[in-house]
């Protein structure tokens, strides 16, 4: 068996739909207990990858191993270990919530004696206990999404694969789902697909960014943020002496470019905490009257746009 610390191992995964290549030699690993964000614009191949990992469809070439089991040689062992929430929650409108979860737990091969306990736990974690006797078709979209999430966790799987779990929810419901993910962290390995960056920032340890079926970046969040920060900008707004300050800043080591327009200065360089300190010191020495100092591109948003617009 391969290294057990990698609970998901994906090697050279390729999937063609006719002539169209949805994913192209994708390889990555997920460690046990990790929360990984699977990011990409719509149509990047996120859903296809998740469908292959869950054994829903077969890849054209490549290999997927879950906890050491090959998805296509031991599909049952793999499927028992995965809780999957597809884009559209797979719920039966004409069943009541509790019966539905009972059905899913048994379908996932949970022993009969454990079913009632696990159903109660899933209801409680997703805060569905109040609506457990209601027909699913009469529930609101947010509740239905929660039922979908409850179905993913009801068999207490090692791995949770969630395909855009917060799409179409109102901000309060999004916050609730995030709180739930925080709760599940640690007891499950979570792979979360999304095109919403704040979601990854809020919940994930690591992000895998894909575009056009290929991985364009794979790093921890700080790693990704630093990557762009390494060569980025700082905006300064001062009250007076802007030209003196600009000249002083040009002499600071680490600064590669200074641009001044009126009372605003744009400094480009390899930004580090040291450099930022030096810049603020220079502003004080020149008595420029520092009003504002901002780092506009610290967000994941820019990395995302930069990485995914190269294709």
């Amino acid at each position: 068996m391969a290294d057990t610390s990698n609970i998901i191992e994906i090697r050279e995964l390729t999937k063609n739909y006719g002539d169209r290549r949805a994913i192209d030699h994708l390889s990555f690993n997920v460690k046990k207990g990790e929360v990984v964000g699977f990011l990409g614009p719509n149509g990047a191949g996120k859903t296809t990858t998740m469908k292959i990992v869950t054994g829903f469809i077969a890849p054209t070439t490549g290999e997927v191993k879950i906890a050491g089991y090959d998805v296509f040689e031991d599909p049952y062992e793999v499927k028992r270990r995965i809780g999957y929430l597809p884009e559209t929650p797979p719920v039966y409108g004409d069943m009541i919530v509790a019966d539905y979860l009972d059905f899913v737990a048994r379908l996932k091969g949970v022993e009969s004696s454990r079913v009632p306990g696990l159903v109660a736990r899933a209801l409680e974690k997703t805060q569905l206990t109040d609506v457990r006797k209601r027909l699913i078709q009469n529930l609101s979209k947010g509740y239905r999404q929660r039922v979908g999430l409850a179905q993913a966790i009801v068999s207490d799987p090692e791995i949770l694969i969630l395909d855009e779990p917060t799409v179409g929810l109102d901000p309060r419901q999004v916050a609730e789902i995030r709180r739930l993910l925080q709760e599940l962290r640690g007891s499950h390995t979570i792979v979360l697909s999304t095109h919403i960056l704040s979601e990854v920032q809020a919940t994930c340890d690591r992000a895998i960014i894909i575009n056009g079926g290929r991985i364009v970046a794979e790093d921890t969040l700080t790693g990704l943020t630093n990557r762009l920060r390494g060569n980025s900008q700082i905006h300064i707004r001062v009250r007076r002496n802007a030209s003196d300050l600009a000249q002083a800043l040009e002499r600071v080591s680490g600064v590669t470019e200074v641009e001044m327009s009126g009372m605003q200065i744009r400094v480009q360089g390899h930004l580090s905490d040291d450099l930022i300190e030096k810049i603020s010191e220079a502003a004080v020495q020149q008595r420029a009257g520092l009003l504002e100092m901002t780092q506009p591109d610290a967000g994941l948003e820019n990395i995302f746009i930069e990485l995914t617009s190269q294709h």
Partner: peptide, 13 residues
């Protein structure tokens, strides 16, 4: 149509 087929096919059956 309801996408519950996904559930059946990703279950150990």
């Amino acid at each position: 149509k309801l996408h519950t087929y996904d559930l059946l096919l990703t279950s150990p059956v």
